Amino acid sequence: MNICLYSSAFFPNIGGLEQVSYTLASYWSKQQHQVSIVTDTPATNEQNTSYIFPVIRCPNFESWKTILDKSDCIISNGYSLKHLAVWLLSRKPIIWIHPIYIPELFQDGQNSLTSLIKPLLRRMLLSLGAGHIYVSHAIEQQVGARKGVVIYNPVEDRFRPLPSVKIDNDFAFFGRMIPDKGVDTLLEALAICKSKSKMYKLDLYGEGSYIKELQQLALTLGIESQIRWYRFLRGEKLVQAMNAAGAVVVPSRWAEPMGIVAVEAMACGKAVIGSRWGGLGEVLEGYGMTFENGNAEQLAECMIQLKEHPDLQINLEKKAYERSHDFLIDTIGTKYLKIIESILKNR
């Protein structure tokens, strides 16, 4: 098959959507399908990465026509109105991947026509899709479109336990330094642990607009000596860092659609503590520890329980690794291919 995978954001940007698009495209290419990623993310001067599939950046209308003439289908990872006209003109089936929630039509604080029209148009897009894939049951329940199936995001097979890597901290966080990711909750929980004479080492891997505020918060809380700050990692360096973590915390304030970082950590055999709402809670239920989003007291209690009860941590590490098998790219990538083949067959 010739697959056009649209990813509104892609590398060198950092995020779950970018990673999932890369993982799917790589797997399908290795299965001898012709895959192109089309993205609105421009290249940067620092970018010199080559891929096993073509990446077309910021295409114009004519470029889109050329791409779609060669494609059997369009898979859109996310919602897009920007390129809808050329997609519809191509008459190729569109399969929507739903990686995030669609905003409700009416929300408190909406005060512009645009804020009302965009959610309405996004919901209208649902009727144009030949198929819908939700990355969690939480997304499925919120979107509620027909012709849909839940397929969790895949994890690359590079994420694996590395027994030779020494544990270098008590807890680690991997992700963007923005308010939604809840790093402030994690810092507050670390301070609560300190007040109970539990001095844990925390490594933070990530970048973002909120990092200076977080560093100031660490100073205010008096925990700066317990924290090390690192830039975000990719590839094998990220796998090494996850294996060096005593445990991984995913403290998101918002209801994560799924939480791919949690799955990557589980694939490395790590116990994971994560916030309870949304798809992240689905992933961790019965396989990790959860706390109410934004509740630093509950998070601190989870951290203390994990560190004070080694048998609990060993048990959770085993269960987490077993759970990660549900997200292997061989399994997830094949599910996608079966759906694409079925849609093309029944056109």
Results as ranks from 00 to 15, higher is better:
residue 3 I to Q: 00
residue 6 Y to M: 08
residue 7 S to T: 10
residue 8 S to R: 14
residue 11 F to W: 09
residue 15 G to N: 11
residue 16 G to T: 02
residue 18 E to K: 07
residue 25 A to G: 06
residue 26 S to W: 09
residue 26 S to Y: 12
residue 30 K to N: 13
residue 30 K to M: 13
residue 39 T to F: 13
residue 40 D to A: 11
residue 41 T to Q: 08
residue 47 Q to C: 08
residue 48 N to H: 14
residue 49 T to G: 00
residue 52 I to L: 09
residue 55 V to M: 05
residue 59 P to W: 12
residue 63 S to T: 15
residue 64 W to G: 00
residue 65 K to W: 11
residue 66 T to H: 08
residue 66 T to I: 12
residue 67 I to R: 03
residue 72 D to Q: 02
residue 76 S to Q: 02
residue 85 A to N: 05
residue 92 K to Q: 00
residue 94 I to S: 01
residue 96 W to E: 01
residue 114 T to H: 09
residue 116 L to T: 15
residue 117 I to W: 08
residue 122 R to W: 15
residue 123 R to M: 10
residue 132 H to N: 14
residue 135 V to T: 05
residue 137 H to F: 14
residue 138 A to E: 08
residue 140 E to L: 10
residue 143 V to H: 09
residue 154 P to V: 14
residue 156 E to H: 11
residue 160 R to I: 10
residue 176 R to V: 02
residue 182 G to D: 06
residue 186 L to E: 01
residue 186 L to P: 00
residue 188 E to T: 15
residue 197 S to Y: 13
residue 198 K to I: 15
residue 199 M to K: 12
residue 203 D to E: 08
residue 204 L to M: 15
residue 205 Y to W: 03
residue 215 Q to F: 05
residue 220 T to M: 06
residue 220 T to I: 05
residue 222 G to Y: 15
residue 231 R to K: 13
residue 234 R to A: 10
residue 237 K to F: 12
residue 241 A to M: 11
residue 244 A to S: 14
residue 249 V to P: 00
residue 250 V to R: 01
residue 256 E to V: 03
residue 256 E to Q: 07
residue 258 M to L: 14
residue 261 V to N: 01
residue 263 V to I: 15
residue 265 A to M: 08
residue 275 S to P: 00
residue 296 A to T: 04
residue 298 Q to D: 04
residue 301 E to I: 08
residue 302 C to A: 12
residue 302 C to K: 12
residue 304 I to Y: 12
residue 313 Q to E: 12
residue 316 L to P: 00
residue 317 E to S: 04
residue 318 K to S: 08
residue 321 Y to H: 11
residue 328 L to H: 13
residue 330 D to Y: 07
residue 331 T to G: 06
residue 335 K to Q: 13
residue 336 Y to Q: 02
residue 338 K to T: 13
residue 340 I to L: 04
residue 342 S to F: 09
residue 344 L to I: 03
residue 345 K to E: 04
residue 347 R to C: 06
